[in-house]
Amino acid sequence: MPLETFSLTLHGRRVRVREHRPGGHRPDEAVVLLHGIAGCAQTWSPVLRRLEEGGFSHRVLAPDLPGHGGSDSPRADYGLGTTASAVRDLLALSGVRHATVVGHSLGGGIAMQFAYQFPHLCDRLMLVSSGGLGREVGFALRAATLPGAGAFLTLTVNRGTLALSRALARTARALGGRLSPESRELARHLGSLADPGRRRAFLAITRGLLDLRGQRGSALEKLYLSAGVPIRILWGARDPLIPVAHGRRAAGRFPEIRLTVMENAKHFPHVLDPGRFCGELTEFVEGTEAARVDVHDVAARLLAAGETPGPAEKLS
Rank of each mutant, 00 (worst) to 15 (best):
P66E: 07
P66N: 02
G67N: 08
G69E: 12
G69W: 09
G69V: 14
S71T: 13
S71L: 11
S71I: 09
S71Q: 10
D72G: 01
D72Y: 04
S73V: 00
P74D: 09
R75G: 12
R75Q: 12
R75I: 14
R75C: 11
A76R: 12
A76V: 12
A76H: 13
A76W: 14
Y78H: 02
Y78F: 15
G79C: 08
G79H: 07
G79P: 07
L80F: 14
L80V: 08
L80W: 06
G81Y: 07
G81S: 11
T82S: 11
T82V: 15
T82A: 15
A84K: 05
A86G: 09
A86T: 12
A86N: 09
V87P: 08
R88L: 15
R88I: 05
D89S: 14
D89G: 06
D89I: 00
D89H: 10
D89T: 03
L90I: 11
L90N: 01
L91E: 06
A92R: 13
A92K: 09
A92I: 10
L93P: 04
L93R: 10
L93C: 00
S94G: 03
S94Q: 14
S94Y: 00
G95H: 10
G95Y: 08
V96W: 06
V96M: 04
R97V: 09
R97G: 15
H98Q: 13
H98G: 13
A99E: 01
A99Y: 01
T100W: 02
T100G: 06
V101Q: 00
V102R: 06
V102C: 14
G103N: 05
G103H: 03
G103F: 06
S105F: 02
S105T: 04
L106V: 02
L106W: 14
G107D: 04
G108A: 12
G108P: 03
G109E: 07
I110S: 06
I110H: 08
M112E: 09
M112F: 09
Q113N: 13
F114P: 02
A115L: 04
Q117R: 15
Q117G: 11
Q117H: 13
F118I: 00
P119N: 09
H120M: 10
L121S: 01
L121Q: 05
C122S: 07
C122N: 05
C122H: 07
D123G: 05
D123V: 02
R124P: 12
L125N: 03
M126S: 02
M126I: 07
L127H: 03
L127C: 00
S129K: 03
S129L: 08
